[in-house]
Design a protein around this nucleic acid. Structure first.
Length: 465
DNA sequence: TCTGGGGTCCTAGGACCC
DNA sequence: TCTGGGGTCCTAGGACCC
């Protein structure tokens, strides 16, 4: 928490709907819903006209249709248009402060002390924020913003929310608790339905009430991190800094189907599409990932995840798809799947995948971005090529004379780790061999040039007997 | 016609290593 | 030989945010 109110938070008002109303005159003054328009869609943004009828973000679109009158526009999102508008606003903020933290497409914190030239008195801040709001509306063609200014991120964020839309709240130093205490606990960031319910059972409804709860109780109810966080936030004790650039920690794609799916072949095709999207975005970002996760939401909304972590990162959609398919193979889909997702984590900003073996080294050299080449010079210990057959590539099908059929889990430093096929309900054992183990053979190498959906895998039946 | 899609962070248990 | 603690990695799930 700072001595002076120099942290600001901007939030564009009902941004998606506002952009649609800006771009189409006939939508102005009318209720507008932007979101999933199909059967299982939900509302991303409801214009203020639509909110008057009870439409809200995250509400099923079907519910919003029931509430809103005829004449309400239901629109699919146009992310390119929103991104462009967002960039205009962020560029404008960058002129105000050298330190801007974009939190989402329509939200940012910015540091008014870092610029060193702003009048940080309450009157000065009000004048400055008023000017920024006017500049945003002018630059975006009428999309309005709400701004909060205070001594911390918490106060700035709560302030921007206080007088929406087109709002402005400047909280002078010393007024923080006065502002917070009457508000419901749900206004605190980090207090969602589960936390609110636990607090309600303890008779705590307001932030002032929360500030009366003993620290030990909060730790007991919510654990170390969350408990400490609540204890401090309730007292307006917030030291979170403004972070300019953040690195992505995961890249994922998922899809909810119009009707539940049971067919593994169809689901595998969906995995290929999702993996293609994920791999493409990894490559665009110059990233690669070691962990592949699938997410499966069943007909009854219960959700599971399954993941595997490889020794080397990859950005290859075919490999991501192959690993994801193997994870899905052990999931019973017969009752119906409503959502399927493919995600990647443990991100690296390079690709090691292509560094083991001759064939792969050639492929790495031929990559237009030369990612594999850089790695050889920067990580010699890891990048030392392994002698032996070139195809100990993760996902590659193999057979061991003693253990039967399996597939390559990872390789490096003269060893190859093989996962052997197990019964469909549990993964098989993993064993590591020297790369030159004569008992280990390649089998039916997958065709890496074919779309993953057409890669033929050997039957696994023998492994079960 | 209940409940999207893209993320972040935390917890907890087991394996493994020192 | 037995006991134990700490640290890290991996996996799975859950809460939360926009």
């Amino acid at each position: 928490m700072r001595q002076e109110a120099s942290i600001a938070h901007v939030d564009l008002d009902a941004m998606f709907a506002a952009v649609e109303q800006r771009d189409k005159v006939s939508l102005r003054g009318r209720p507008v819903i932007v979101g999933g328009v199909a059967g299982r869609g939900v509302v991303s943004t409801a214009s203020y006209e639509a909110r008057a009828y009870g439409a809200r973000s995250a509400m099923p679109t079907a519910e919003a249709r029931r509430r809103c009158p005829s004449g309400t526009a239901f629109l699919s999102p146009r992310f390119a248009a929103y991104r462009k508008t967002s960039q205009v606003v962020m560029a404008l903020l960058a002129e105000v402060s050298p330190l801007v933290e974009q939190v989402s497409i329509d939200e940012a914190y910015f540091d008014l002390a870092a610029a060193g030239r702003h009048d940080l008195s309450p009157d000065g801040l009000t004048a400055l924020a008023t000017r920024i709001k006017a500049d945003i509306a002018a630059a975006t063609g009428g999309v309005t913003a709400s701004i909060g200014v205070g001594t911390s991120k918490l106060i700035a964020k709560i302030g921007s929310d206080l007088n929406k839309p087109d709002g402005l709240t400047v909280v002078a130093p010393g007024q923080e608790q006065e502002l917070l205490y009457p508000l419901p606990v749900t206004r605190l960031p980090g207090v969602g339905p589960a936390t609110a319910e636990r607090l309600r059972r303890a008779g705590v409804h307001t932030i002032g009430g929360l500030a009366q709860v003993a620290r030990a109780d909060l730790l007991d109810w919510f654990g170390q991190a969350h408990g400490t966080g609540l204890y401090k936030l309730a007292r307006a004790d917030d030291d979170r800094t403004i972070v300019g650039e953040r690195e992505a920690k995961s890249v994922s794609a998922e899809e909810t189907f119009d009707v539940d799916l049971t067919d593994k072949t169809r689901l595998n095709t969906e995995i290929d599409l999702l993996a293609t999207r994920v791999g493409g975005r990894l490559r665009t970002g110059g990233l690669s990932a070691r962990t592949v996760t699938i997410k499966v939401r069943f007909y009854d909304f219960t959700t599971i995840t399954r993941s595997i972590t490889r020794a080397q990162p990859t950005d290859d959609p075919r490999l991501i798809a192959q690993l994801a398919r193997r994870l899905l193979a052990d999931v019973d889909t017969s009752a119906g799947i409503r959502l399927l997702g493919v995600g990647t984590t443990t991100l690296a900003d390079f690709v090691q995948d292509d560094l083991f073996g001759t064939v792969d080294a050639v492929e790495a050299t031929s990559r237009p971005d030369g990612a594999g080449q850089v790695e050889v010079t920067e990580h010699p210990a890891i990048a030392t090529p392994v002698a032996g057959p070139p195809a100990w590539r993760p996902g590659q099908d193999v057979r061991h004379d003693e253990h039967g059929p399996g597939w390559v889990w990872g390789s490096g430093r003269g060893r190859v780790t093989v996962r052997f096929e197990g019964p469909t309900t549990s993964p098989g054992p993993v064993r590591t061999f020297p790369v030159d183990d004569p008992a280990l053979h390649l089998t039916d190498p997958p065709d890496w040039t074919a779309p993953a959906s057409q890669v033929v895998r050997p039957a696994t039946d023998q492994a079960l007997h």
